[in-house]
Amino acid sequence: MNAPLVSLDKLSVHYPLGRKLLGPSPVLKAIDEVSLDIPKGSFFGLVGESGSGKTTLGRAILRAAPISGGHATYRDGEVDYDLATLPKDKLRDFRKRAQLIFQDPYAALSPRMTVRDIIAEPLEVMGITRTRQETDKRVREIAAKCRLNLEHLRRFPHAFSGGQRQRISIARALVCGPKFIVADESVAALDVSIQADILNLLKSLQHDLDLTFLFISHDLSVVAHVCDYVAVMYLGSIVEVSPTRELFRQPKHPYTRALLSAIPSLDPDDTGKAQRLPGEMPSPANPPSGCRFHTRCPVAQDRCRQDVPHLQDATGDARVSCHFWRENLPA
């Protein structure tokens, strides 16, 4: 494993939920004490269902969501930032190094700007280029890498299909030369035939530009194909982190197992393995005691209702947050 580019230590994001006259104010724990290392140069997957906190975690790392506790550090060899306490001038520099690609390519691009202006905007806002010629050169270079030609640059976003728009969003995120990219559900809005094209593009850009990706997705099949490591989130905490192959070969957390078996198989006869989770994810405003998954866990025991499990080393370089992972591995 390479040295971590981003390292999280008990990172928390809590949102206050109103105020009570007596006693402590209620809080919504969107992210609760997450510790995680994202190795430099990796394609790091973050999966979970809606409400698990995966988007909030990505935003907290980019300082777009408030960090309420713990530490997040960013080290790319040139700079060493403590993200929770980063002063404003350093934050400006960090924004050049870490960028976000959004989910919906229809909402992310201004309909009143040409593609050239959309891609050039970060350069102008951050004052990276001085002259128009310099800006144009950078825009053309990155556009070519994202397979957009000069003709495309003169048009407005409405003239483009979903896949082409996502390539524009990618060019815009990459134009300032970042090292770290958070891709939040960046292929979720695309049709299958286009999705493969964008995934292949992201992988080749990662290779060419030496990028580190945090790839947030709800689609385990996509993650299985593009990511080197996968972290699985449930209700604001990480239940399992593992090299991708290991996670799919032998999922160790009961939630990961249920998640994998819920993916509908392409083989119509393959229905028997499905392991169904009862109920739905509880509210993060009122999470269960002990292990947060115990209300839906098929193998929960008394201890799970009281003791909070922490990530512990398991076999195959995996880390899992379950008291009984060893006992519950399928034979």
Binding site: S161, G163, Q164, D191, V192, S193, I194, Q195, A196, D197, L199, N200, D219, L220, S221, V222, A224, H225, T244, R245, F248, L260, I263, S265, L266
Partner: peptide, 24 residues
């Protein structure tokens, strides 16, 4: 055939994802 090739499949993690060329 193109749709099935573009689909990430869990039974073969090494299979390349082949997009259907062009746009709708």
């Amino acid at each position: 055939q193109g749709l099935l090739q573009a689909l990430p499949r869990l039974d073969d993690l090494d299979a390349p994802l082949v997009p259907v060329a062009g746009d709708i």
